[in-house]
């Protein structure tokens, strides 16, 4: 059954949104009008330029409120999240002990030239994130944090040598699509080495979604705000399923 939603200002279906942007022109009343027409051209109605001012010579900044006629049918959306049922650390350890019957070996790395390890550290390090312990703290995970700027070749070599079961790769830098190229290259190299089916391949980063990860051929993708236990639950559940299938 269709259920349409649109933005809510103070009345259902008023479609109110706020926009802010910079135009490469000096501010004047004409610039305000340019901003207004631009937002009209985007398809918005009821456009109010709430603020327009100069921020440097040749640049002006605007805050605009407007209404959108667009709406979205919720019934047509696929549920994209990789999250499985919420499990505690103890439950996850127990699941692995009972269903996988050996420790799961997890390697994490920031690949390519990316030096932003905040995400991978939050998921792997003992301390974890927002009071949720990292994978190092789990009894049934053997974790390897390879750190930043790890080349794809080195990571694959490591996976082979250390018989890794699950790979967590993260990238923050998204300028000019470098992240997508690196993620894809890793998948291809694992495929070429005949390792792809043996590992769980998981992507992370502030702009990552499970949908994007699936498009890239990954088993799962986790974006901003992900807790370590969510990743842990995914690895444990999926590993348990695989084990069951093999038996």
């Amino acid at each position: 059954m269709s259920r349409y939603v649109k933005p809510y200002g103070d009345t259902l279906d008023d479609g109110k949104v706020q926009l802010s942007f910079t135009l490469p022109m000096d501010w004047s009343e004409a610039a305000d009008e340019a901003a207004r027409r631009l937002v009209v051209a985007m398809g918005f109605g009821d456009v109010t330029v709430a603020e327009g001012r100069s921020i440097a010579s040749g640049f002006s900044f605007f805050v605009v409120y407007a209404s959108t006629p667009a709406s979205v049918d919720l019934a047509a959306l696929a549920a994209p999240a990789a999250r499985v049922a919420t499990l505690t650390m103890e439950q996850i350890d127990a699941l692995i002990r009972e269903s996988v019957r050996r420790k799961i070996r997890v390697a994490g790395a920031c690949i390519g030239t990316d030096a932003h390890t905040v995400g991978i550290d939050a998921i792997l390090n003992m301390k974890g994130y927002r009071g949720d312990y990292g994978l190092e703290r789990y009894k049934e995970f053997e974790t390897f944090n390879l750190g930043s700027q790890v080349s794809i070749e080195r990571l694959v070599e490591f996976v082979k040598e250390e018989r890794i079961d699950a790979i967590l790769v993260s990238q923050v830098v998204t300028q000019k699509g470098s992240d997508v190229q690196n993620f894809t290259a890793l998948g291809e190299l694992l495929e070429a080495e005949g390792l792809r089916d043996r590992v769980l391949l998981i992507a992370g980063g502030p702009r990552m979604t499970n949908l994007l990860a699936n498009e890239l051929g990954y088993d799962a993708g986790f974006g901003r705000g992900t807790l370590p236990s969510e990743v842990a639950a995914f690895i444990a559940t999926r590993s348990a399923e695989r084990r069951t299938v093999r038996q």
Partner: peptide, 13 residues
Amino acid sequence: EAIHTPFLGDRAL
């Protein structure tokens, strides 16, 4: 921060 390298308008704000 955490979204993109700063836009010109971000720096001004």
